[in-house]
Design a protein around this nucleic acid. Sequence first.
DNA 1: CTATATTTGACAGATATTGTCAAATCAATA
DNA 2: TATTGATTTGACAATATCTGTCAAATATAG
Lengths: 101, 101
Amino acid sequence: MKTTGEIIREQREANGLLLRQVAGKLDVDVAILSKIERSERTATRQQIIKLAEILKLNEDNLLIQYLSEKIAYEIADEDLANEALKVAEERVEYLKANKKK
Amino acid sequence: MKTTGEIIREQREANGLLLRQVAGKLDVDVAILSKIERSERTATRQQIIKLAEILKLNEDNLLIQYLSEKIAYEIADEDLANEALKVAEERVEYLKANKKK
DNA sequence: CTATATTTGACAGATATTGTCAAATCAATA
DNA sequence: TATTGATTTGACAATATCTGTCAAATATAG
């Protein structure tokens, strides 16, 4: 299963772009982008949006990868991770249904 | 759908305990516990464990409530929340299967 | 009214996040 | 091998978030 960083790196290379070039458009130091691609740092939500645009990746797909990774990483070492995720889905449904603030 | 705070408050009252008493055992200011019960602050994982013990609640159940709430809150305003949660489940499976460091 | 319980909000200290920068490493090749 | 360009690494800074204390305000019961 690919990490978000791997997806970004593969697509950057497929597009023949250097870290420097993408980092420039992203407006961060190359060091940050290097670390994002190797999963040593996580991107911000806004950077993911921008990266999808720069690298011509489907924004929704990349966001799903990114969000799922954040969640999974946060909970992966819990024995009850799967149960918690299932209940989280119900909760999200509930919140969306009642989001009339 | 109940919040973790509601569960805690209900059980505290069912046990006839004051904020002060539970906060004392938890070793935090009553203000914190008051806020936790009203979902104005979140508890820490360790506090949840301790609260389950103090209030005689099933620890796994309370942890699931707590974790699911944390996840749901973090992602609820994403349009792609449900897709992200589904992929997160796959990711957790994958991580657990390959957790040989 | 007074006592006690709870809530509220300002604040402090610790920790986490996000970034910069410079030096080290790697890879290709003249 | 020496040089050049690309990437990685690690120290550090600025900022934001988390977790708690405290005191004052408010609510509740007798």
